[in-house]
């Protein structure tokens, strides 16, 4: 019974950490999966024009939708993305396509952006504009809203994963950690994970945490709970044995 109480106290202690997140972005991320991305003609900084399907046929694509005049999320979003992808330098299993959805942006705007980010020479990154903005944004479920007062778009920080066949395999919304990006690069390379977790779940006592880099599950706190009773029994057995032996002597 005493053990029971201790455990209870322990758990109540943990309660403070257990918080819930919102579901809405998770929900948006689930749209357009396995739909084909619109085959838009692209003008790429420093390269010949190409169509989208020529690009993803070479390498799976992580599409980041931004506009250069953004005073809001676009810049931190790209900086964070660059930072998170640093460790994948030289990895040719994907390409990041930074594409403007603002008709005002031209190639030199994009060129400047690449320079500012220090990604001009980076093989992994491409900066592009297109004439078919609305078809493309529609095909990936991206709906920026023009705010004429601020002369800015209200929009999500959206990453779209597109595999070699041009299908959308995964979407990420917001500034995301390395783990999520690993899931994204995994999915565009058709790495199948039979399950995933919803964002709003309390993950404190989860048994397994999937690591997309290795493709393996790392044990979580929950797994300790599963092993604990067997360990307790074993120690019980040993301590009883020692105690009864001692009392006999």
């Amino acid at each position: 019974m005493f053990k029971n109480i201790v455990l209870l106290l322990l758990i109540f202690g943990f309660c403070n950490f257990a918080d819930a997140q919102t579901t809405s972005t998770a929900l948006k991320e689930e749209t357009n999966i396995y739909e084909r991305v619109y085959d838009a003609p692209l003008q790429v900084v420093g390269q010949e024009s190409a169509t989208f399907d020529e690009l993803y046929a070479q390498r799976p694509v992580i599409l980041a939708l931004i506009f250069t005049r953004c005073t809001g999320i676009c810049n931190p979003f790209l900086v964070k993305l660059k930072e998170s992808l640093q460790f994948k330098d030289g990895d040719d299993s994907f390409r990041v396509m930074v594409l403007s959805f603002d008709p005002r942006d031209n190639l030199s705007d994009m060129h400047r952006l690449a320079q500012n980010l220090g990604l001009e020479e980076n093989e992994q990154w491409a900066f592009a504009i297109t004439d078919s903005i609305s078809e493309l944004t529609q095909s990936v479920g991206f709906d920026p809203v023009w705010d004429s007062a601020r002369r800015q778009f209200d929009h999500d920080a959206l990453l779209v994963g597109i595999n070699r066949e041009g299908y959308i395999t995964k979407k990420l919304i917001g500034l995301r950690e390395r783990g999520d990006l690993d899931l994204l690069t995994g999915s565009i390379n058709n790495v199948f994970v039979p399950t995933y977790r919803l964002q709003n779940q309390n993950m404190l006592f989860s048994c397994f945490n999937y690591d997309p880099v290795t493709g393996k599950n790392k044990p979580g706190l929950g797994l300790i709970f599963l092993a604990l009773p067997a360990v307790l029994t074993a120690s019980l057995l040993i301590s009883i044995s020692i105690l009864v032996r001692r009392s006999r002597r």
Partner: peptide, 24 residues
């Protein structure tokens, strides 16, 4: 690559099936 993804949400006592993600 599957041809289609169907989202399924189960709740006491019905299923929701949709081609779009299902709002809780």
């Amino acid at each position: 690559t599957p041809a289609k993804v169907i989202h399924v949400a189960a709740m006491q006592f019905s299923f929701f099936l949709s081609e779009k993600a299902i709002d809780r």
